[in-house]
Design a protein around this nucleic acid. Structure first.
Lengths: 247, 247
DNA sequence: CTTGTCCTTCTCAACTTGAGTAGATCTCGA
DNA sequence: TCGAGATCTACTCAAGTTGAGAAGGACAAG
């Protein structure tokens, strides 16, 4: 602390507890039609044996890089750097959220298409995908972080092309509809969904190709699409059940 | 390092640079029909003489409390604690954003009805309201933070009752429309705006009262309303010019 | 008193939405 | 091999929403 002395003009180190900065990642994917979140098993105190969101200390790197790194350490590096959509969620810094010291955690949301089974990270923490409805009693304030991450994801599905981050580079309208259904937890009218997706400029663009086979239980081969260049959906795809969310 | 527990178990302080945590506040209000942001004049290195967003180090308090405290130190304590709407914007932590040391800053957005002229804070920094289009060349990465704060505010006006945070507890539909016009920078069709605001459940509720006088340049006395209990607007008030924002 | 402003309510055509229907195409199992 | 059932895609239609404009009154300023 030499240069910063002027910045702190009158700053007494004793007044300000040292603060650790971490990132925590709410990584979401869809497996077998269920929205799942990546959790790690804690081996250390506190919350030993509890599950937690993957995360760790920020090093000499940007916050985004720290989040990607933590994610890569728990899953597959190549995938994490490649196809994952990453965005900041919110920062949690209440005193006492970590019983040992003051920790300010920058939480991230990550969305990925169906990933292979998570592999243990370099430090041998056990990591696995868990359906979000089974992800309870997490360590620290991670229940709250997860809840806010899910809320954000459900909202962003309405007015951004986020759903395309959950499917491969080529997909059918039905696959996209199943993403919405999984994240929102409710079925959508197939005909109307089809009409809306195709009417939003830049949401999807046709590849001209057709799926190699029909649906699992029958039906014609669907046309294939890829993500368009829109960053906002206009008009938005509003979820059917909104009344509860309004007040 | 997969989670915070590693901090005590085997953490080598030399591996991780110490990180300072600050809050910066993008405080917005409307003065004379112009959207204004609160800026302070920097007296110290670096960026001496430049303007910056109000902010400072986080103490033994929540992040929200830190933001409110910094705001109160620059303006009026009572107002700041009372009628200000406060929400987290994003956290900025790129190495090098502060030339002296690693600083992670949690940025906040604050919205307030017309406030009295800002007063110099306890640390005698000069603070004043500046029309947002005149707020350029700010210190650090504050230009970017301000830009993202404005974008967020413009978006939230569409689907939340945020506009009511810029007016008093009782207001006319026209006052509300002028808030939208100031923040979005474009005029709105008065008749359609009126119809939409009244048709959104929970956006505003009538007080039964009428303004004490007509408009400044004539016109009948308008009915008075107060904010309703809605937290989301449905249907939303979409801004007219959207095409540019979509891609 | 006159002029012009502005609040509030209507009207209307264009568009969007939800719900349902229908034909064609495909998978699966008998 | 064939039939039953599922699915993709395109329509239809009524109900609701939107943007643009017009109109009637109420009011301030000169």
């Amino acid at each position: 602390m030499s240069d910063e002395a002027s910045f702190l003009a009158g700053y007494d180190p004793g007044d300000y507890p040292s603060i650790a900065v971490t990132v925590d990642v709410v990584a979401l994917t869809i497996r077998d039609g269920a929205l799942c979140v990546l959790l790690v098993e804690r081996g250390e105190q506190p919350f030993t044996g509890h599950r937690a969101l993957p995360g760790g200390f920020v090093r000499e790197e940007t916050l985004d890089e720290a989040a990607l790194r933590e994610l890569a350490e728990e899953t597959d590096v190549r995938l994490a750097g490649d196809r994952v959509h990453l965005e900041q969620l919110r920062t949690y810094g209440n005193p006492g959220r970590d019983p040992r010291m003051r920790v300010v955690s920058v939480a991230y949301l990550a969305f990925a298409p169906h990933l292979p089974e998570a592999t243990a990270g370099s430090d041998a923490a056990r990591a696995y995908w868990v359906p979000v409805e089974d992800a309870k009693d997490l360590a620290f304030d991670h229940d709250q972080i997860l809840a806010e991450g899910l809320e954000r994801a459900r909202d962003k599905l309405e007015y951004t092309p986020l759903a395309t981050a959950f499917v491969g580079t080529e997909f059918t309208i039905s696959e996209l509809r199943q993403v919405y259904a999984s994240v929102w937890g409710e079925e959508l009218h197939a005909g109307n969904f089809h009409r809306k997706v195709l009417s939003v400029p830049g949401f999807v663009e046709s590849t001209g190709e057709t799926a190699s086979r029909g649906g699992e239980r029958g039906g014609p081969r669907a046309k294939l699409y890829r993500a368009g260049d829109a960053r906002l959906l206009h008009p938005a795809l509003l979820r059917p059940t909104r009344e509860d969310r309004v007040r």
